[in-house]
Design a protein around this nucleic acid. Structure first.
Lengths: 134, 134
DNA sequence: AAAAATAACTTGCATTTTGCAATACGTGAG
DNA sequence: CTCACGTATTGCAAAATGCAAGTTATTTTT
């Protein structure tokens, strides 16, 4: 969890974004929470891309420090923790949506998943509202 | 240029995006071209964040391989190369815009630059059209 | 209240990537 | 035909990643 702590103080908003979530895993964790409805460490570990446990811990700590996720005890499973998005985290929704749209337009691999892309094309506003609500 | 070549074949559009431009430098190069109007290797090297020359070469090659930028001789300076965005590259505009908006809302550091953010707030569509045109 | 089970972390180590400085290559101008 | 400019490569130390194994903390079970 060192790379992303080195915030480049250029003042540029793109740089700020990259320093906050511009790595190979952070947005994937956001996806797990926002789109796939995942909430716990063990659920994140099961993600298709196979994140390593040490990296996952580092990224969750980073996201917490950035005020993007909040950690609390799960009231329904007293030994688990729940990670939830803050407003700052939910505000990432439009970025995720634009990434999905871009990939939907340009990922021509045969196994590219288009389900969410099509849903967004049909009703982008509704999709974003649903994302933020969850 | 190794990290991003390992495309994780999960089919997920977020993953595709991250594998294509999800690192500390790639979107910064896109910013240089799209927002700051830079075109050459030496101009990119001068960017505020100070990218190393070996990383820059690697990222440019990667972007070319991904069909996001096109390299050609500069007709006005016959020993320079010009890097320009393809349609796939220009289509990244909405992602950049959403990152700028998000940072505009959440970067509270005193030296955060808000100029572009304000411009987008005033006329987002116009801003995007201008970006893509350049 | 001890043992087992579950969930969340940590550690050690090999590998990969980064960052930085120095150097080399290629092209065109004088 | 050499010099300057623009682009690109190399070598090496430092840092981050990926993986497997181990640890801690809490809760359920007996």
């Amino acid at each position: 969890m060192k790379i992303e702590n080195k915030k480049r103080e250029s003042g540029c908003p793109i740089t700020y974004g990259l320093d906050t979530f511009g790595d190979r895993w952070t947005l994937l964790i956001i996806r797990e929470i926002m789109i796939l409805g995942k909430r716990t460490y063990s659920e994140f570990l099961e993600a298709d891309e196979g994140i390593a446990s040490n990296i996952l811990v580092a990224r969750l700590k980073h996201l917490e420090a950035e005020g993007i996720v909040e950690k609390s005890r799960d009231p329904e499973n007293r030994r688990a923790f729940i990670y939830e998005l803050t407003k700052k985290g939910r505000d990432l929704a439009p970025i995720l949506i634009e990434i999905i749209i871009w990939s939907g337009m340009h990922d021509n691999r045969p196994f590219a998943l288009r389900k969410v892309f099509n849903k967004i094309k049909r009703d982008r506003e509704g999709f974003e509202t649903a994302l933020r609500a969850e």
